[in-house]
């Protein structure tokens, strides 16, 4: 329809994307990472979530002060020692903090950052103003995703960093201990701890992907966050059912605890590698769907 009378005009500015735009507008300059980071930083839920990451190790530390002396051995198995050793040094305290947070708390936090980011804009009605700036949709998603991931990583680091700091102050800079490994020198132990954090971050990418996909699909932030957490729990429950056999290996939570293998000597990376493959595949799939969906969707909120 536009064919007749439409005349192709060479792009004088050399930037195809900004033809006919207002002065100073460039699509690639819209929604800078810093701007989005500040938008999110100003939100109460961001501050609370990050604050809690700092608070939790403190709470755990205080709780350990009420040592009643009688150990109820609530963590049977080879890795139950993580609890026994929690107060043996800063590294072990950090490990314990991660151990107790990994299965649920961090999932919720990551789901919060990634699930809330687009859905909340939609519910405030500000999404349509971002799109009419215009921020290209793919760029909007990319920046939102990167900022959400940055906050998730920040939360993880804050949790581990605080735990390491106060744990070391309280219990000292001791070797990392567990029954599955020989005692690891503090330097080596720190490396292992970073490895654990790295793997945990990779596993949580699945949550990030799922929450983000739900976030662009719904206008309700709660739906996106809660949906991601619920599906994660569902996957965890299914993973407990051994009758499913080999099918369980396809569950996104199946390799969730493979990071424990990083504590043994020598390091066992088999499950870590498989878990990474699983997590990255799922995350890519979810993010791909999110982009595919959002770049085609009618924004009617």
């Amino acid at each position: 329809m536009a064919g007749s009378g439409v005349e192709a005009r060479p792009d004088g500015a050399g930037r195809a994307g900004s033809v006919g735009a207002a002065a100073g507008y460039r699509p690639s300059a819209t929604l800078p990472f810093g701007a989005e980071f500040r938008r999110q930083a100003s939100r109460r839920r961001t501050q609370l979530a990050l604050g809690f990451m700092v608070l939790l190790p403190l709470i755990i530390l205080i709780a350990f002060q009420f040592d009643s002396g009688n150990d109820d051995d609530n963590g049977r198995g080879e890795f139950g020692s993580l609890i026994e050793f929690a107060t043996s040094g800063g590294l072990n305290f950090t490990l314990f903090t991660i151990f107790v947070s990994a299965s649920f708390l961090l999932v919720v936090v990551v789901a919060l950052f990634c699930g809330d980011t687009v859905a909340s804009e939609a519910s405030w009605g500000s999404l349509r103003y971002l799109l009419s700036v215009p921020v290209p949709r793919a760029r909007l998603l990319a920046v939102k995703l990167l900022v959400a991931l940055a906050y998730s990583a920040l939360a993880l680091l804050l949790l581990a960093g605080t735990a390491l700091l106060i744990g070391t102050l309280r219990y000292g800079w001791e070797p990392l201990r567990s029954t599955v490994a020989a005692e690891l020198a503090p330097g080596e132990g720190l490396l292992r701890l970073l490895g654990v954090l790295g793997y945990l971050a990779v596993v949580l990418l699945v949550v990030a992907g799922l929450a983000f996909l739900l976030s662009v699909t719904t206008d309700a932030a709660l739906g996106a966050v809660g949906g991601a957490v619920l599906l994660w729990i569902l996957s965890s429950i299914l993973d407990q059912i051994t009758a499913l056999g080999a099918l369980r290996a396809f569950l996104p939570t199946h390799y969730g605890t493979a990071w424990l293998g990083l504590l043994s000597t020598p390091v066992q990376t088999d499950d870590v590698v498989r878990g990474s493959i699983s997590a990255i595949s799922y995350a890519t799939l979810f993010w791909g769907l999110a982009f595919w969906r959002f770049t085609r969707k009618d924004v009617v909120s």
């Binding site: 994307g17 006919g20 735009a21 799109l131 009419s132 700036v133 215009p134």
Partner: peptide, 13 residues
């Protein structure tokens, strides 16, 4: 004169 599609830069005007 610019054909408008979602995200067209001309929306900036």
């Amino acid at each position: 004169g610019h054909r408008l599609v979602p995200g067209s830069p001309v929306l900036s005007r």
